[in-house]
């Protein structure tokens, strides 16, 4: 079965990002397809590579990046939500005159159409938030 996952909250503040990760991992382990993980609202903060949690805690951002690499996951960060919250890739940085980018490996920035498309193409949309 094809799942789409929507993540509405950032890492650490709410459990939503953890729950979404555990669900995604379990779905992959069961042989399901993850059509896309879409990060919206503060969820875009899951995609900053500047995150530096204490060593004895999980690294939520790296965990996503690793899962994406292992399973060729499509992880999309909403551009409008990302711009508001300062999550930028090289292209966005250039376009908006910023001197740095901070997007973690495995994530890409794109439009809300990607969420709508996920809703259309996937068999199920599962939303995690606060």
């Amino acid at each position: 079965m094809k799942f789409a996952i929507q993540v509405n909250e950032g890492p650490y503040q709410h459990q939503a990002a953890d729950s979404a990760y555990q669900f995604t991992k379990a779905a992959l382990e069961k042989g399901h397809e993850i059509f896309r993980v879409f990060f919206y609202h503060d969820g875009v903060n899951n995609a900053t590579k500047l995150t530096t949690p204490p060593q004895d805690d999980r690294n939520i951002v790296n965990r996503w990046s690793e899962l994406a690499e292992q399973h060729n996951l499509d992880m999309v960060v909403c551009v409008a939500a990302a711009q508001r919250r300062g999550i930028v890739d090289e292209g966005e940085a250039k376009r908006n005159g910023k001197d740095a980018e901070n997007i973690a490996p495995g994530f890409r920035i794109s439009g809300l159409g990607q969420l709508v498309e996920a809703g259309i193409q996937a068999d199920r949309l599962v939303v995690f938030g606060d």
Partner: peptide, 20 residues
């Protein structure tokens, strides 16, 4: 249920509604 059970439930129902 565990997370695998959560996945099964999401698959066996037509849709999922999250009461955030």
């Amino acid at each position: 249920v565990d997370y695998a059970g959560f996945v099964d439930l999401a698959a066996t129902h037509d849709k999922v509604n999250a009461w955030l």
